[in-house]
């Protein structure tokens, strides 16, 4: 095993940073719903892929700029999230059962995608796809850079809302002790619907980022589950910045492992990291 050149390592680390940001963006909505609503929403990944296909369709057939599709995707996925949360609340689905219910929903979305777009590979050809620029020895692809900026911007925005607004504090308080938060005037039901809508809208944004950089196929939905779950658990449930930081750590270490050893090492690195940190981190669930 020969050590690759410094440039190759740096380029690997950079691509790890970018994919890690996408792990973080996907993990942001998943972790918020898990930590604050106590719902493990597997359908989050399916929503992201549905958004990716919608973005692909609008951009390829409709000729819309991929980023302009956000104007349609964000509000419609917000509404989708609200409807799903309303249903889960209506039938009082417990946290564990939410895993089953949203797994079923994932299968439905997957089948829907397959029906409309078939199982063939789809790749969005946009003006952004070929754009890249050079920084010293390194190539920076524009779609990945935009994904990174969106992930950082949205994570920071959610963090600020959670910390500095009455709504954010109410959501955190209701997650800790719902009845007492309610006794102080927090309308738990309305807040749950709002948060679920935001999480689904975040899945929509992540989907647009997926469409920009990746070849889409319905079965790929499941390919992201493991590593994004790892990012969420490392970052802390309900944390806004945690999944992004953890996602980047995982992404970079995976990319370096691939460069130094071989691509098959990537999952070993990320999950060894997960186990090690869970064992060493004191007192956190």
């Amino acid at each position: 095993m020969t050590l690759p050149s410094a440039t190759l390592l740096a380029q690997s680390a950079l691509s790890g940073l970018f994919i890690g940001a996408l792990y973080g963006l996907l993990g942001l909505g998943l972790g918020l719903s898990w930590g604050l609503l106590h719902l493990i929403n597997l359908a989050h990944f399916a929503f992201a892929f549905l958004a990716a296909y919608v973005c692909y369709q609008l951009a390829t057939v409709g000729g819309v700029d991929p980023f302009l599709t956000l104007a349609i995707i964000v509000p419609s996925f917000f509404a989708l999230g609200v409807v799903v949360q309303w249903l889960l609340a209506r039938f009082e689905v417990s946290p564990l059962n939410s895993l089953l219910a949203t797994f079923g929903l994932t299968a439905i979305v997957e089948a829907t995608i397959q029906h409309f777009w078939t199982a063939d590979f789809r790749k969005l050809d946009s003006a952004y796809a070929q754009m890249k620029f050079r920084v010293g020895e390194l190539f920076v692809p524009v779609p990945e850079l935009l994904t990174f900026l969106l992930a950082v911007g949205l994570s920071l925005a959610i963090w600020a809302v959670m910390r500095y607004t009455d709504t954010g504090r109410a959501l955190r308080a209701a997650a800790e002790d719902g009845p007492i938060a309610e006794a102080f005037g927090v309308n738990r039901r309305a807040h749950s619907l709002l948060l679920a809508g935001v999480c689904a809208a975040l899945a929509g944004v992540a989907g647009v980022c997926l469409a920009l950089s990746f070849t889409l196929t319905p079965a790929q939905i499941y390919g992201w589950v493991g590593v994004v779950f790892a990012a969420v658990m490392l970052g802390g449930l309900g944390s806004a910045l945690g999944p992004l930081a953890a996602g980047i750590i995982i992404g970079v270490s995976e990319a370096l492992a691939m460069a130094v050893a071989s691509p098959s090492w990537a999952p070993i690195v990320s999950f060894t990291l997960l186990i090690a940190i869970l064992l060493l981190r004191p007192g956190k669930p």
Binding site: D166, R169, A170, R172, A173, E176, D177, I180, A181, F184, V186
Partner: peptide, 13 residues
Amino acid sequence: FVGMTVRENLEIG
């Protein structure tokens, strides 16, 4: 709300 600061607890009040 044990995971939140005293100030945040009071603000929820």
